[in-house]
Amino acid sequence: MNRLKSMIGYTWAILAVLIAPATFLGHGALSRTLADVTGVTVHPRYSGGEVVSRIDHGPYSTSIHRPVFDALVGKSKEGFVQMTWAPASALPEWIEEPIDYNRDGRVDFTVALNTGSGEVWLVKSHPTVVAPVKSYRLSDGWAVRVRLIRRP
């Protein structure tokens, strides 16, 4: 038993010498493998959630992300929906757009954005829409998050 323990000890120590360069050299492939195997993603609170629909306006497009109510367990009462407009170079100075975030075929709110100043206006048409959270100037466009409450 002592001999086996000793062998394991030395093997691990030698493996440690190999782990060091392997960690750095195989870093890219190992990172991708880790991401694939675990299937983790960045929390939608930060990423804005997956894009569920895209509206093409010719020179620019609007991406509507899925409503984010993700909590540690289950869903939270409050959440948001994110809209992104890109590319920045093609955006008009004033964007006004009706949004159907829950995709029920009816407009839930109309959002207006001044792409010069970042000011946002919101006209609510659905009781789950609360207020605009904020506008964000991105490297290639603008994003707006609108606060929502979840209906039971």
């Binding site: 782990i19 060091a20 880790l34 983790v40 929390h43």
Partner: peptide
């Protein structure tokens, strides 16, 4: 939740989330 609660990117840069996890796992094992 199978998500990382950090406003970073998962892959693609040296300071991406998966990259730091790999470095941490390797160095902790060693």
């Amino acid at each position: 939740t199978k998500t990382i609660i950090f406003p970073g990117t998962l892959l693609g840069t040296k300071t991406a989330i998966a990259s730091m996890f790999v470095l941490w796992i390797g160095s902790s094992l060693a």
